[in-house]
Amino acid sequence: MIALDSPHIGFVLAAYMAAAIVIAGLVLRAVIDSRMRNRALDILAARGVARHRVPSSGHPEGASAVRTISDGRDTVGSESSAQGAGYAGRGEGEEGGTARSHDDGRSDRR
């Protein structure tokens, strides 16, 4: 049992306070960070989905060409991990989004 009347108790408590602050900071940062990321993706998804739904009057051919070109580059280039991660978990976010995200991945490749 910790003796609260010990001469150096202030230092012990300060050390535990410091630990609490550092750990709380790390946890808070993790939580806020993932919240913000998810929100940013939701906003992007909302825009992206809207664009998918409305069949753009333009040129689907051109779009798919862009996709394949950029894919071809990415396997070689530096962005591959970022892009891989980018395509990867689309629509994941919630539990059970795995199957859907796999489908997304495949349709992306096509």
């Binding site: 940013a40 993706l41 992007l44 970022a82 991660a85 978990g89």
Partner: peptide, 10 residues
Amino acid sequence: ILARRARSLT
């Protein structure tokens, strides 16, 4: 990973 996804989508 989510951040990179957002970046590549943007």
